[in-house]
């Protein structure tokens, strides 16, 4: 199987390069749609790739209490782990309070991070509905998202975080 697939890839690589048989190893296997969709978990600000499903802050309250509160405190107020809520308007002060709601520029990042890495002791264990719901719950603590609204692939990318315009892109500096 290994040899067959390698040979196939070589043949396709040669076809792609216009038939030239050069020094290129061409040893990659074609990745299937199924392989890619199983691992393509990243969600950019556009929301591309967000899964089906959804949830409300009210549903998220239950998830938060069961999965998050022991580390992030009641209402996302922090301790023993990072504070998630509050601090809006403090960034230019002498004591900036950086939280998800005060600092993060995109709500898609919150969904992405919870889904891939939380809870810390059981990453990737939440259902997509639970991730939507608990994301909605955190945002609702600071009224960034309505407590009765349903967060899903359509509404999530439209959430405007308070610090959306707070970043200066330095990627052109090399």
């Amino acid at each position: 199987m290994f040899i067959f697939r390698t040979g196939l890839s070589c043949a396709m690589a040669c076809a792609y390069l216009g038939g030239a048989i050069g020094a290129d190893p061409g040893l990659g296997h074609d990745a299937t749609e199924a392989e890619i969709s199983a691992m393509d978990i990243s969600v950019p600000p556009s929301g591309a790739g967000l899964p089906a499903g959804g949830g409300t802050a009210k549903e998220g309250e239950t998830v938060y209490a069961a999965k998050c509160a022991s580390c992030h405190g009641a209402g996302g107020q922090g301790k023993p782990a990072d504070r998630l809520t509050g601090g809006i308007g403090t960034l230019a002060s002498k004591q900036p309070v950086k939280t998800v709601n005060s600092f993060w520029p995109y709500a898609t990042t919150l969904f992405d991070y919870i889904r891939r890495a939380m809870p810390f002791n059981a990453p990737m264990s939440l259902t997509n509905d639970q991730v939507y719901a608990v994301t909605a719950y955190i945002l609702a603590q600071d009224n960034i998202f309505g407590s009765g609204e349903r967060l899903d692939a359509t509404t999530l990318p439209n959430v405007k975080m308070p610090n959306r315009d707070g970043f200066v892109d330095r990627s052109a500096i090399r």
């Binding site: 969600v43 600000p45 960034l91 002060s93 998800v100 600092f103 992405d112 970043f167």
Partner: peptide, 26 residues
Amino acid sequence: GPTHTKDETSKYTDSLPDGKAEQFTF
């Protein structure tokens, strides 16, 4: 474009006195 992951927004960004933060300071 960039994906804006947790570790290039929430973390590893550089906060300035005016409250803005520099992002992608590679």
